[in-house]
Simulated assay, not measured.
Amino acid sequence: MQKNNFADRFINTIEWLAAIFVGVVALNIFVNVLLRKLFSTSIPDNYDFGRMLLGILIFWGIAATSYRGGHITVDLIWSSVGKQGKRWIDVFATVVLLFVVTVQTAMLFDKVRLTYVDHVLTYDMGIPTWPFYAVAWIGDVCAVILIAIRTWRLVFKPEALHDEHFEQKAME
């Protein structure tokens, strides 16, 4: 059994935070539906909160799935090449993903900054929206970090990955 280093603890923390955000979004929907059906009322700014929480969930979900490599993929070429070819395809795909998510993170930071500067508020209660965007941006930053860890491990330490196909190879 491999001992957990800082990177593994960081990865696990990101996955737990993403799971917590799933719970928060589900709880928000459940409570609002319950209030609407039983008491004919709703949470003030529920639409704004729901929209922003969903954005947070998406970016933290990207962070959680980016490292593991267990998300939906089309592996027609990958499955037909040898072990070394698979590794280089994985490295190339991860580097491209790292570039794309890094650019996305820079653009999302600009959105956070503009939302702060423009002093955008929620409709009912007038709560500033930039903190919600900032939490989503932090999730995107975590995705960049996790993809960078994945890239490093793919190149220098593939046995440390938690990919399904690496784990299956270890069991064989």
Rank of each mutant, 00 (worst) to 15 (best):
D163T: 11
G61I: 03
V24W: 00
I20N: 04
Y47E: 07
A7D: 08
K86F: 02
A160F: 00
T41M: 05
L38H: 07
V155R: 04
G23I: 08
A7F: 08
I58N: 04
S42Q: 14
L27F: 12
A148W: 02
L76W: 13
A7E: 10
L17C: 11
H162P: 00
I58H: 05
Y133H: 13
Q2W: 03
A18Q: 04
L121R: 09
R9A: 01
G69C: 06
I77V: 15
F59E: 05
N12G: 09
E164M: 10
V101C: 05
E164A: 15
H119W: 07
V22D: 06
F39Y: 13
M125Q: 11
M171L: 14
I145V: 15
L114M: 15
F156E: 02
C142N: 09
V141E: 07
A7R: 12
H71F: 08
T102Y: 08
L54M: 12
E167Y: 03
V96Y: 06
I56K: 02
L121N: 08
L27Q: 01
A134F: 14
T105S: 14
T122D: 03
V135I: 14
R9K: 15
Y67R: 05
S40G: 05
D90V: 03
I29M: 07
V144E: 04
F21I: 13
F132Q: 02
V91P: 00
R153H: 10
R68A: 11
F59M: 14
V24S: 01
E159Y: 07
A64F: 11
L34H: 09
V95D: 02
T13A: 15
A143C: 13
K169P: 00
A18M: 06
T129R: 13
V103E: 09
I11Y: 06
Q104W: 15
G23A: 05
D75I: 10
V144D: 10
F30P: 00
D124H: 06
Y123C: 01
V120D: 12
K111Y: 09
H119C: 07
G23K: 05
N12H: 12
H119Q: 15
L146D: 03
V135Q: 01
M52A: 09
N12I: 11
W78Y: 13
N5M: 02
L161G: 07
V31F: 07
F30D: 00
A134D: 03
D110R: 12
P128D: 06
V91L: 02
F166P: 00
V91Q: 01
I89P: 04
G139A: 03
I58P: 02
G70H: 07
D163I: 01
N4R: 14
I62E: 03
W78I: 04
G70W: 03
A143Y: 05
V144G: 06
G126D: 03
L108Y: 15
T73Y: 13
G55Y: 02
T151H: 04
V103N: 06
K3P: 10
H162R: 15
